[in-house]
Nucleic acid binder design. Structure first.
Lengths: 349, 349
DNA sequence: TGTCGGTGAAGATACGCATTATCAAGAAGG
DNA sequence: CCTTCTTGATAATGCGTATCTTCACCGACA
């Protein structure tokens, strides 16, 4: 351990200015009332001493004294800054950074959180969580017990992504996939499509259930008939399409759609002329033979901004009052019509 | 301001276990010597109380008591997480994250640092710099006065990128461009090239000077004759090439090389058959008509790892001893031969 | 002249933790 | 039986800041 690195303290300033530490604190915080009073002359003298010694407050001491820190924590289940995760985290982190910059917050990334009992854990003996005024949680695999503990401890935090499964009321900001999925399906139906396939990954996440629910509802209500297919059966798609006379394949996300298109082209099916394709996820950067893929635009930066906004609300509100707050916010993904859904006039209704 | 959020303290554990706060602290830190002794029985009782109340240490209090925090600061001059800066910062941040994860450090991004007097400043009244054990500085535009202040305060920090211009000895980790530039030029000369153009951006940074210095030296020593051209004269390149009978154009970076190639192709010059091209910078992802561009691979992730390694060394070493340390490290960029430098047998030597 | 209210500032304390010094009780030794 | 260690633990203190309480002083007023 290195020797102590000493810094300028309020006490030293006090000595230089010939006043007490209390007075320095008062001047620094521009406090002035009936309780404490510092005349302009003294104030100026103290300020001069502050300048002279280039004082900077010790955040740890401020924190210990019960003040806020202007730091918020970022906890990600996976590595946040790796190239692989940048597709997903990148826009979110960018949005968070910009919002933090605007409000004047620093960001503490919990990159140290060790793996305990097989999962990454926010609560360990030396967690720096308490250094922050609040925390943003990112990632698919959050641990329910940790969320509940955060709620129980009345620690201000916001999850990004739906967290309905947890018993406790977890504040979150997430994407509404129901609205745009419904819109997309209705548009396809209006375009003459009657039979379709839905290719999914078989995940049991809230958003996956949401999307699938809309698909099933559309099927049940006769707006557009779907056959649901797991991703492991991509190779069979051409056959299934022929059997059902489907003219449209919708997939859970854009990557899946690319795989599907690959399989179709391999089987000699023209896309989108013979078979239209759409994805129920972000389609930026995904193109099919030069055409913009039909799907959604997910406002991730806005999502992040919304999360910090909600977090700020929680931080500045007394936990007693949290019950009355709207702590779950949904942002509607925007439909990208794209060029991969063609109008069909050849299908019998 | 929200009401006080109370946490479990050592005192509460002490009460539950029927011991003093001191004993709890001793147990938590596994301290045991001639000064303080706690028998196994008591120790177990305390540990049980700790488990029961799910104690987590308050980092601010630890810090105030003079311990290290396992937090390092990341200061970037520009926005670190924006899509535009990801090309440059991405690999660095990824490397930092991985190294931090390995050592058990959290990362504090100073996203709040406000703009003062036109520049972003690390030292402001409420800087959270003190919360960290050390700091990594990234970006082109560092403010010399701040670097000097960090040095003067004996604060452990490492800059990424050469910082020779500053008077004080700034610890840094940077890329050695001299070695690979020399190698690249020698290889080109060995390939029969005699006349070349060097296209630069006219910047006066250390690395720009380094590269240009090697180019000029090679020219002076007759290994390969260069004509230096500013980027604003790209349009004239075909003419200049003809006038000098150059068979090779080297640019300061890969983006510049792409512009150059564009200009050449526009003038009907075949690349690389008539004119070879290379860049003195990272060429990953840059292709010329399907060919890998000749240039360098810059080990940015390794650079980051090296930076954290050096930082750790500084943190764990008494500032008194810093003078004896090697606080400037260079990593040699690797030459990427690529396919854009062809062998010339038609040039008179 | 004694009292009262206002002014300017210092003293004391809390925050949670680590550490140093101290102390009581029992064991060992003469 | 008195002294000297050893053991087991506690009280006290410091870290830097903010805040609550106290206090001395001075002019005004009765």
């Amino acid at each position: 351990m290195p020797s102590k690195r000493r810094r300028v303290t309020q006490r030293e300033i006090a000595e230089l200015a010939g006043v007490s530490q209390t007075t320095v604190s008062v001047v620094l915080n521009d406090r002035d009332g009936s309780n404490v009073r510092v005349p302009e002359a003294t104030r100026a003298r103290v300020k001069q001493a502050i300048e002279q010694l280039t004082y900077v407050a010790d955040p740890a001491a401020r924190r210990l004294a019960g003040l806020d820190n202007q730091i918020i924590g970022i906890f990600t289940y996976e590595a946040a800054l790796s190239p692989e995760s940048m597709d997903f985290y990148g826009p979110l982190l960018n949005g968070i950074e910009r919002a933090a910059e605007r409000i004047g917050w620093d960001l503490l990334f919990f990159t140290s959180s060790p793996v305990e009992n097989g999962t990454r854990s926010l609560f360990h003996r030396k967690t720096r969580l308490r250094l922050t005024d609040g925390c943003v949680l990112l990632g698919q695999q959050m641990v329910a017990s940790e969320l509940e503990r955060l709620v129980a401890e009345q620690f201000p935090f916001v999850a990004i992504g739906r967290r309905d499964e947890t018993a406790a009321a977890v504040p979150y900001v997430a994407i509404d996939y129901v609205t745009p999925t419904t819109a997309l399906i209705d548009q396809a139906a209006a375009g003459g499509h009657r039979q379709a396939l839905y290719v999914h990954r078989g995940r049991n996440t809230p958003t996956a259930r949401d999307r699938q629910g809309v698909v099933e509802a559309a099927s049940a209500e006769g707006r557009l008939a779907f056959l649901l297919v797991g991703e492991e059966r991509i190779a069979e798609l051409p056959r299934l399409a022929r059997a059902t006379e489907a003219t449209l394949i919708i997939t859970e996300d854009a990557f899946l759609a690319e795989d599907v298109v690959h399989a179709l082209l391999g089987a000699g099916v023209a896309v989108p002329d013979e078979m239209s394709v759409a994805a129920l996820g972000e389609v930026s950067g995904h193109r099919i033979d030069g055409r913009a893929m039909a799907g959604f635009h997910v406002p991730r930066q806005q999502l992040a901004a919304e999360a910090l906004d909600l977090l700020q609300l929680l931080i500045t509100t007394d936990p007693q009052e949290w019950a009355g707050l709207e702590t779950r916010r949904l942002l509607v993904a925007e439909v990208e019509p794209g060029d991969t859904i063609v109008t069909r006039t050849d299908v019998p209704s």
